[in-house]
């Protein structure tokens, strides 16, 4: 528990973690606000559209960028090397002299990041759904019992995505590449999504499977994967990656 408290404090005292939090909350809620006001405009013009079943959830799928930043910097900060003039030190040496067991260190880190990502997801989901309701007013779909498993799915998706980003960064020991690749894949160039056009198997890639936990209608996609299956597929990816990361981390020189 002491080690977990220390890891939580480490995250909280890192400015990039607060950037991740801002991104995670603002990105989905701002996009949701814009989309909702467009929908409202169409409704009042009498264009007849009603808000889609994925209103708010679509935006939360993008907002996972915040969780990606969290997962990456949570471990890349350990490897960040001071300038030559400052002695070229890295925090990982301090961390491992305080918690010498590599496995224990990694498990503590994973727990701290999972908890932080879950909190972030809860705040982001509440804010995003709140914005949708405020903008659409009476036109908003009411959140019902169906939404509970979907919102749990959002939280799982964010936690898993943060852990995927974490696992990849444990292997690279450097934040820039995983950050660039993962953020691009979520926003600008959705490689995994484009792959589903080539092969249906790409639907079982971690992010494509994971979003099924809460997204009901994927654009131009006919492959049916249930929320539970999607969640289990993503769990498997995360588990495999973390095991590989743990093996590499415990074997190599720090």
């Amino acid at each position: 528990m002491r080690a977990l408290a220390a890891e939580a404090w480490k995250l909280a005292s890192l400015p990039t973690v607060w950037i991740a939090t801002a991104v995670g909350v603002l990105v989905p809620s701002v996009i949701a606000g814009i989309t909702a006001s467009a929908t409202l405009g169409a409704i009042t013009r009498g264009a007849g559209t009603v808000p889609g079943v994925d209103t708010g959830y679509q935006e939360l799928a993008f907002g996972v960028v915040g969780a990606i930043i969290l997962g990456v910097v949570g471990i890349s900060s350990e490897y960040f090397t001071e300038s030559e003039e400052s002695g070229g030190g890295r925090q990982i040496t301090t961390s491992l002299t305080v918690v010498p067991s590599r496995l224990r260190f990694l498990l503590t880190k994973i727990s701290a990041i999972a908890i932080a990502a879950a909190l972030l997801a809860i705040i982001a989901a509440a804010t995003t759904m709140g914005v949708v309701r405020v903008v659409l007013g009476a036109h908003a779909l009411t959140l019902g019992a169906d939404d509970v498993p979907r919102l749990v799915g959002v939280v799982c998706y964010w936690v898993y995505t943060a852990l995927l980003a974490f696992g990849i960064t444990v292997l690279t020991r450097h934040g820039v590449i995983p950050l660039a690749v993962l953020i691009a894949n979520t926003s600008v160039v959705t490689v995994t999504y484009l792959l589903t056009k080539i092969t249906p198997l790409a639907n079982y890639l971690p992010d494509m499977a994971g979003v099924r936990m809460f997204i009901r209608k994927l654009a131009d996609n006919t492959v049916e994967i249930s929320p539970l299956t999607g969640g289990l597929v993503m769990t498997a990816w995360v588990a495999v990656l973390l095991v590989i990361a743990a093996i590499a981390f415990t074997r190599r020189d720090a």
Binding site: A5, W9, T16, F80, E82, G87, G88, R90, T94, V98
Partner: peptide, 26 residues
């Protein structure tokens, strides 16, 4: 133990660095 440099992340304050180390050792 003291190895290269400060062994702290540059974005933290000196006190914040010492605090997490202290916390992890109770």
């Amino acid at each position: 133990a003291m190895l290269d440099g400060s062994g702290a992340h540059r974005a933290r304050t000196g006190r914040a660095h010492l605090r997490w180390v202290a916390r992890s050792a109770g």
